[in-house]
Design a protein around this nucleic acid. Structure first.
Lengths: 340, 340
DNA sequence: ATTAGCACTCAAATTGCCTGAGTGCTAACA
DNA sequence: TGTTAGCACTCAGGCAATTTGAGTGCTAAT
């Protein structure tokens, strides 16, 4: 059987109607809805065909039809082809003077959630391949040193390190110089045993201190779970089909834990494949089997990028979501470019 | 009418039973439950009295009784009097080497949520009256300065500031020295116009830069919404009485927004009144009208403290919750004392 | 190829009935 | 005078029967 023009029109009508109402849609509705001027009976025949082909489903005999995952998939693929999305013009309202990564991200998550009425999540750029740009030790008081590490992309990490002795200004200066000389430009994985060994011998009497410092820096950078911010998770209550307590609880737990979702977002290998859409069972993780997830990538610079995700019901307004994401992506790209 | 010993026993029995089951409790249950050896009929009479006094409520004719807010209140007050709480011994598993405030707090929130099976929230210590301990500018690259501010309690804040010119090492050193001399030991509110004026004149050619810097520092410290972390918000699904979608949605929104809850926690003026319990309508905020909220204070040092809150159903296991909070409070107090 | 008509199906809402838990009251008892 | 047994009454919740209405599939006519 062939998926001709008319069948497509009908399918699209079914999907769009279902997106709006969330109720199974019947033949009569379609007959009025479209401008095909066909009677409900004809539509019925076509719908029967569409069902046979697997694009729509009858939840039970004598109910209307709803799109299957396959149907959604077709619809989404069509959408993605005509790139011309209408975008509402969203703006991040940010404190321009000082750029704080996390507040940008939080804001972005919120903007998305509010605009789309779905749940959103955004991950901080991944440390992976992020290089050390600058590094500094400072004596804060008798017992503690402050270690500040700035990574490419101007991500700042700081750690307090407890020490037993007070270091002189001179020693600190020496240590700082040394640390920077040896570590600048390296990414975390490149700080291997040989580099560390060299540092230790160079440091003269301060080998144990250096070890400590490297240790703290390394663990604080490595152990870093990818930071992630969610927003609008309660939006899911707006969609009755997610609104039974078991499903809602699962989803909310996933949103609270974030870990699994982060994996989902990064799971397509490391490359940036633009906007990805997971419909229902297509998703590799259990928690979102009843939802759709749309993810996108934003860039800070070569090899440093983060992800944005939108989680909503299967009958998500894909058009709007994709548009919003594209918009936000470019907005973020711009912000980070300016920051450089 | 008087609330004699026997009535108290019965009331306590009713509450305890209701805490366990969540179902209205009837006279027969109590007759068996307590060791008073009274028939259900007698209990009925007593219950009728208790209801008249407002300690218990009948959700509908011919159902059992449930505690009223007044009843809970009495129960909680009694609890608070015999301080001897059993505490399960919870331990924060923390990376001992570097102490990062936010990870301690996150961990604490989680520990509470897991231990109690309620939702928890913890706020970072309030900046209020927090003094500047140390302050440093560093040139990161051609276009940006890094400003690190360490506050009492070893809370570290950092900000990148964009500049147009490259400063020499010497200038930086001078600026740093100056900033520290003038600002050390001040709290945010003490940085007033006169201090700023003095700084500007002292700085010679760098007045505009200084203004910028002060601006960034001040706004970043002032605008800081009190940071707050929540955990276990999905625990509320475990309690059927909160589990209808309207209530759940409200509560979860409040937990996500955090703002209102933060206000609740700090609303009792600034002093530390130990453990506070808000039962149902006693709470000043709308979102928790169907819940109980228990808050406690932990201390970092004089005048610097944060709050912990537990949000659960009215029939919360107050005994356990209060115990857990006391335990955690002392645990936190200890951690921060060690850190000093 | 399209349509009107009709019989059929099934979920959801409505109704009525029953049951069991629980109460309040009264009269009897210690 | 406080306690208890007994009984009538209430009401939520569960269950089954019934109705309703939206929607389908099929067939015969156009």
């Amino acid at each position: 059987m062939e998926l001709d023009e008319r069948k497509m029109t009908i399918l699209r009508a079914i999907i769009q109607n279902y997106l709006e109402t969330g109720e199974p849609v019947g033949s009569r509705t379609i007959s009025k809805y479209t401008d095909l001027n066909l009677s409900s009976a004809t539509i019925r025949n076509e719908m029967s065909d569409l069902e046979e082909m697997g694009y729509i489903i009858q939840p039970h005999t004598s109910a209307g039809r709803i799109p299957s995952d396959k149907g959604y998939r077709l619809y989404v693929d069509m959408l993605m082809q005509d790139k011309q999305m209408e975008m509402d013009n969203l703006k991040l309202e940010l404190n321009a003077k000082s750029e704080k990564l996390d507040s940008i991200l939080k804001e972005a998550a919120k903007v998305i959630a509010v605009n789309t009425n779905y749940a959103s999540m955004i991950t901080a750029p991944r440390y992976h391949r992020r290089r050390i740009k600058f590094l500094q030790l400072t004596q804060v008081d008798n017992a503690s040193l402050l270690a500040v590490v700035i990574l490419e992309g101007n991500v700042v990490k700081n750690n307090l390190i407890h020490v037993d002795e007070v270091l002189t200004q001179e020693t600190l200066l020496k240590l700082n110089l040394m640390l920077n000389t040896f570590l600048q430009g390296l990414d975390i994985e490149e700080i291997n045993a040989s580099v560390m060994q060299k540092l230790r011998t160079e440091s003269g009497g301060y080998a144990p201190l250096i070890s400590d410092i490297l240790d703290v820096i390394a663990t604080s950078l490595e152990n870093e779970e990818v930071e992630a911010y969610t927003s609008g998770s309660t939006n899911i209550f707006k969609y009755p089909e997610l609104n039974d307590s078991a499903k809602a609880s699962n989803l909310l737990t996933a949103l609270e834990e974030k870990k699994e979702l982060t994996e989902l977002m990064y799971q397509e290998g490391d490359s940036d494949r633009g906007i990805q859409v997971y419909i229902g069972d297509e998703s590799p993780i259990e928690a979102t089997k009843d939802c759709s997830v749309v993810t996108a990538t934003y860039h800070i610079e070569e090899g440093v990028y983060g992800k944005i995700g939108i989680i909503g019901p299967r009958r998500m307004d894909y058009k709007k979501v994709v548009g919003t994401l594209q918009n936000l992506m470019s907005e973020l790209d711009q912000i980070f470019k300016k920051g450089k």
